[in-house]
Design a protein around this nucleic acid. Structure first.
Lengths: 157, 157
DNA sequence: TTGATCGGAGATCATTATAGTCTCCGATCT
DNA sequence: AGATCGGAGACTATAATGATCTCCGATCAA
């Protein structure tokens, strides 16, 4: 149902956290390690580790080894788009299988397929949507995140 | 990876086919049976049958029993949106698990979740996208999707 | 009125994708 | 030297999906 994977969710949480630590926090510039994030958001440590490793390989964050090691954003939060984050984890955005067909693969419906073109256009629109929103947008600037005031109804709205 | 299920794909193909038969075809007004669609697009007959049954229950198409039976669009192709079709098959659009949380379910990250709000906005944008395109748009060679103006700030519109 | 043709519905199986775990390694700081 | 970090691979479990099978009731036409 057009769902984003948990891994991608975790990636978004982690990057948001790293970004918020790196700027406007108590100790700006500090590196963030996996354990800290995992505990803060109740994410399985080893799974989160995998996710961060991928983000590092993709070049969204920088890793630092050894004690006091951890991760840093590789570039400004406004230059990291949601599309980049999701695609780092899940691979190229593809709402349908035939989106990025390689030679050899073949869709049984391809011959008389009547929906390929419109679907590709939808996909492109979704991509633009995700690529126009940045990690920066997700954070402080706009009132995207409603800080939990004590009076706020429910747990996390 | 934000993928649409095969069932939803089949639903789109089938509806497009039914619509194209119902209008501007050789025999307008004719009902279309499952077998015809399955053969035309190489879709497993019984799976397609399931899909069409769901579409019928959802009210997107009308079914007619017996010999010479089959399906008809329940309303004009311009009044059937892609969102309606996909949601008929896959249930409510939810890019993340906590989108439509019922009481009892609970997300481990919910307490300190920092991405819920922006994700819900993205989801809403995608929904609007899918709900603004109709089956009618998918047919004619007409311009399918009005690309969102680049000036619209990522989230929200 | 009977039988072939259609959709309706349920259970079932296979396959794949996802989520999560375990173990070992190498780097680095103190 | 040793504790703390990330890097990497194999591995398991579970859920979602795709697909199949079987039986039923409705309906039309011969």
């Amino acid at each position: 149902m057009l769902k984003i994977s948990k891994k991608a969710d975790y990636a978004l949480m982690a990057l948001q956290h790293i970004a918020s630590v790196q700027f406007g926090d108590v100790t700006p510039g500090r590196v963030v390690n996996t354990k800290e994030i995992a505990e803060e958001y109740n994410i399985p440590l080893e799974l989160l580790a995998k996710v961060l490793q991928v983000l590092s390989k993709t070049g969204l964050i920088e890793s630092h080894n050894g004690p006091k090691g951890g991760y840093l954003l590789a570039r400004n939060a406004r230059e990291i788009t949601i599309a980049q984050i999701i695609e780092s984890i899940e691979g190229p955005l593809a709402i349908t299988d035939c989106s990025h067909e390689k030679d050899g693969e073949f869709c049984m419906q391809r011959e008389h397929c009547n929906i390929r073109t419109p679907l590709l256009k939808i996909q492109d629109s979704i991509y633009q949507l995700l690529n126009n929103m940045t990690l920066g947008d997700m954070m402080g600037g706009t009132p995207l995140i409603t800080i939990q005031s004590p009076t706020t109804q429910g747990v996390g709205r």
